[in-house]
Write a protein that binds this DNA or RNA. Structure first.
Lengths: 343, 343
DNA sequence: AATTAGCACTCTCCTCATGAGAGTGCTAAA
DNA sequence: TTTAGCACTCTCATGAGGAGAGTGCTAATT
């Protein structure tokens, strides 16, 4: 069923009212506060139709209405008006970012900003590294046949891994190896996924030169077996969920808490919806995750030097101020992209 | 007032009973379950005295008794009997640790083990680095006057920091610098706190040799300005708090949640009680933190190669199985010390 | 002198009834 | 097509009443 203009207006009013009060919205309130020049009876009738079509629901027969997931979805896709951040807020965000010069701290600040600005939970997925250009590689001997490998990418991301080798390798040899690889890296842009192949190819030559390096093959293979898909998650503002009346019920709180506890679930959900559009909204049951059934997630992707790198997210009750969440998510992801690109 | 033997027995019984049932303990239950060969009236009288002396309290006049913080404290200091882990549990712990070869993963596994074994929240404070011997230092150019410094200590801890320099430094120079410092480090054991002084002293010589390196002084100063005191915190099992009936009330939940949200508060509390004894128990209001008023924290320190390095903790309701918590904390911290010393 | 039986008393918790209030659905009139 | 009017439904707060748990006190017993 196609919604007519009046139904859209009423749905918008219900969503707005419910978002601000967290109380079921009655026909009288709509008539009184939203000046639609309609009687409560008419509004009631329209609400009845909206309910029949699953945009609204009632907790019990004689209560006001609450938007359903479908209702929010329609609102988000068709009704909501973008809400830009105030210049003052933008300045404050930039100000806070200016305090940080380090990658790790920037990630933390981002999650804090998200939670403070939205009163919800702020999530940041650290950048994935695999499509970055490798800029420098260093091998540092830790003794006991263990070697620390540090990879630096052009985006300034640093990735480290300790690898085990079958025999002791002297510092001189490690240095030789680092220098050799770095000189190769300087010649052309190589990303991590094809670094290994290149190295193997190049190493053939050395191995024929110098038999002593014939264990390097295996060693490098292990080195590049880093699980790039598991990017780190930064969460902030868990306590904010307690501010929302919907989580006064212990059962609902339980769901969202287990989501917060298992950062991986949240990260996987965000990752699942990556691509296609920069900013996405996942409402309640749309995610199919029972833990998310009372929550919505607004995500926005950020990039480093133009390449997609990671995503940020805002997690809160389905009853959230979507226009504001979207504008915050978009502004923060833009700023984060800028900052990380400068690193 | 000195407690007599019978009062101690009754206090122990009340603590044990309350820990298992989470219900106020009546005199009848004690008489029935703990075979003290005393009538309920006698037990009631002793409980009355225990209450008068602040070891027990009643939620209301005609209910059973619950231990106070003071009651738990007395139990923990004088009454509880150590409870060693079963061989089977120990084997399982070792088995799980065997899966991890990496530092970061070991920290995570430790916090998971703590939370799974205790049904409470597991906390791990990463090792502090400042009294470690510096084994290797590497400078990696990131371009744009930024240099990544990686410090590896003898305990296998890795610490990285990006520093800004006033002018571009070529890779050759950085290499020269790394090699020079590393050769010095190899000569004797130097920890981070005195590394800087030594370097400055040694650098005097080079600077007189080679004027080009005269900006290195400032550069190193910045490099060693890392905030070593802020060690990372690993938390696991937040959701476990929901399993305890005491946190069914939203207000109490609020307190512990804010503790979980601000990992720093928790870390600071653990740090505050470090030293003196390996394992410590902080009960309820003893911490003076309002967020901790319904919680207890059992902490145990671990070491790396014999040097104190960090601590683990178990956070749960004051109504926790202290003997078991202590034995788990001690066993895990011992294992962690072993594993980290091998790295 | 210590212990215990007995009992009145207190407080919680559950259930049920009651009534006010909010908001609806329906119908007939405008 | 819209609206006024009204009966109806459901929630929520309040209070009464009774069962049950457990205590504190006292007098009797060991």
């Amino acid at each position: 069923m196609e919604l007519n203009e009046r139904m859209k207006t009423i749905l918008t009013a219900v969503v707005h009212r419910y978002i601000t009060t967290a109380e079921p919205v009655s026909s009288a309130i709509i008539a009184q506060k939203y000046h639609l020049n309609l009687s409560t009876a008419t509004i009631r009738h329209e609400m009845y139709l909206l309910e029949k079509n699953d945009y609204l629901w009632q907790p019990h027969t004689s209560s006001g209405r609450i938007p359903t997931d479908k209702g929010y979805r329609f609102y988000v896709d068709n009704l909501m008006v973008k809400n830009y951040l105030k210049e003052k807020e933008k300045r404050e965000i930039i100000q806070i970012y200016r305090q940080s010069k380090e990658f790790e701290e920037t990630m933390k600040i981002t999650s804090q900003l998200l939670s403070k600005l939205t009163n919800n939970i702020g999530v940041v997925l650290a950048p994935v590294i695999y499509n970055n250009v490798v800029k420098n590689i260093q091998f540092i001997s830790l003794g006991n046949n263990r070697i620390l490998t540090v990879i630096v990418t052009d985006a300034g991301l640093i990735c480290q891994k300790v690898i085990n080798v079958s025999g002791e390798i002297g510092k001189d040899r490690l240095n030789y190896l680092s220098n050799f690889i770095n000189s190769k890296l300087a010649e052309k842009d190589i990303n991590i996924t094809n670094l290994n192949n290149m190295l193997l190819e190049e190493l053939e030559k050395i191995i024929s030169f110098q038999e002593r390096f014939n264990y390097i093959h295996k060693f490098l293979e292990e080195c590049f077996d880093i699980k790039y898909s598991e990017n780190k998650v930064y969460l902030d503002g868990r306590i904010n969920i307690m501010k929302h009346p919907e989580f006064k019920e212990i059962d609902k709180l339980n769901y969202i808490l287990s989501l917060i506890d298992e950062e991986n679930i949240l990260a996987a959900t965000i990752r699942k919806y990556l691509g296609f559009r920069k900013t996405k909204i996942i409402i309640g049951k749309e995610s199919k995750l029972k833990e998310m059934q009372n929550c919505s997630l607004v995500t926005s992707e950020y990039s480093i030097k133009g390449k997609p790198a990671g995503a940020i997210g805002i997690l809160g009750p389905t009853r959230m101020d979507y226009p504001r969440m979207v504008s915050i998510a978009e502004y923060i992801s833009d700023k984060l992209s800028e900052i990380l690109s400068e690193f």
